[in-house]
Amino acid sequence: MVVNVTDFKASLSGAEPASNLDAPLAALWWAAKGNWDQAHGIAQDEETSEAAWVHAYLHRVEGDIGNAGYWYRKAGKPAATGALDAEWEEIVQALLASRRV
């Protein structure tokens, strides 16, 4: 079970994302595994602000900054300009923290 970033990173050794990951986190899992298409397919099928944030990140990875900007606005987030790895970790941390009750 994934409950923190360390667990999330450790789960990357598996063949599939952990069963307790929702769509935005699963998309980030696939992105970390280098499967942009799988990650994008998951993110674009969700209509939450969290999925929009992941979708923005994925378009930034792709190099499509204009499209990324659209998705950052949909997510209500400022457009990221820092390192992609740092943004990935920031999103993972934020999404995992929002699931703790």
Results as ranks from 00 to 15, higher is better:
79 A>Y: 02
7 D>Q: 03
33 K>C: 01
13 S>V: 13
101 V>D: 07
41 G>V: 01
12 L>K: 06
39 A>Y: 09
22 D>P: 07
57 Y>C: 04
83 A>L: 11
61 V>E: 15
79 A>I: 07
19 S>D: 14
16 E>M: 09
88 W>I: 10
97 A>F: 13
39 A>V: 07
37 D>V: 10
55 H>V: 10
83 A>I: 00
42 I>E: 05
3 V>W: 05
47 E>I: 01
12 L>A: 06
20 N>C: 05
69 G>T: 05
46 E>A: 14
26 A>W: 08
19 S>R: 10
13 S>R: 14
92 V>R: 08
95 L>P: 12
80 A>P: 03
81 T>S: 12
69 G>P: 08
33 K>H: 10
25 L>I: 11
50 E>C: 10
57 Y>E: 06
59 H>E: 04
72 Y>S: 09
59 H>C: 01
83 A>E: 15
98 S>C: 06
99 R>L: 08
3 V>Q: 08
46 E>L: 11
34 G>I: 01
69 G>Q: 14
61 V>M: 13
54 V>M: 11
47 E>Y: 14
7 D>S: 03
29 W>H: 07
26 A>F: 01
36 W>K: 12
93 Q>L: 11
98 S>V: 04
53 W>N: 13
80 A>M: 06
4 N>G: 01
8 F>V: 00
61 V>L: 14
86 A>W: 00
46 E>P: 01
11 S>M: 02
35 N>I: 00
91 I>Q: 13
57 Y>H: 15
20 N>H: 00
101 V>I: 10
24 P>D: 08
18 A>Y: 00
43 A>T: 03
36 W>F: 15
2 V>K: 03
101 V>Y: 02
28 L>R: 06
77 K>Q: 15
9 K>T: 15
25 L>Q: 13
32 A>M: 13
89 E>G: 02
95 L>Y: 05
72 Y>D: 15
36 W>L: 15
35 N>K: 12
26 A>H: 10
64 D>H: 07
4 N>A: 03
56 A>H: 08
92 V>K: 04
40 H>P: 15
10 A>Q: 15
4 N>S: 06
16 E>N: 12
80 A>L: 01
14 G>M: 05
49 S>K: 14
76 G>R: 10
38 Q>I: 09
8 F>R: 06
55 H>E: 11
101 V>M: 08
100 R>S: 12
13 S>G: 13
26 A>V: 01
38 Q>N: 09
101 V>T: 07
81 T>Y: 02
86 A>N: 07
45 D>F: 01
12 L>D: 04
70 Y>L: 04
21 L>Y: 01
15 A>R: 11
93 Q>T: 13
36 W>I: 09
55 H>F: 12
40 H>E: 07
42 I>N: 11
29 W>Y: 10
57 Y>P: 04
91 I>K: 06
83 A>P: 00
88 W>Y: 15
12 L>P: 03
54 V>F: 12
85 D>W: 04
69 G>R: 14
95 L>F: 12
53 W>Y: 14
66 G>N: 13
33 K>A: 06
49 S>E: 15
82 G>R: 00
99 R>W: 03
4 N>F: 10
24 P>I: 02
17 P>M: 00
35 N>R: 13
33 K>Y: 09
99 R>C: 06
63 G>I: 01
49 S>C: 10
9 K>F: 05
89 E>C: 04
9 K>H: 03
66 G>R: 09
93 Q>H: 07
3 V>G: 02
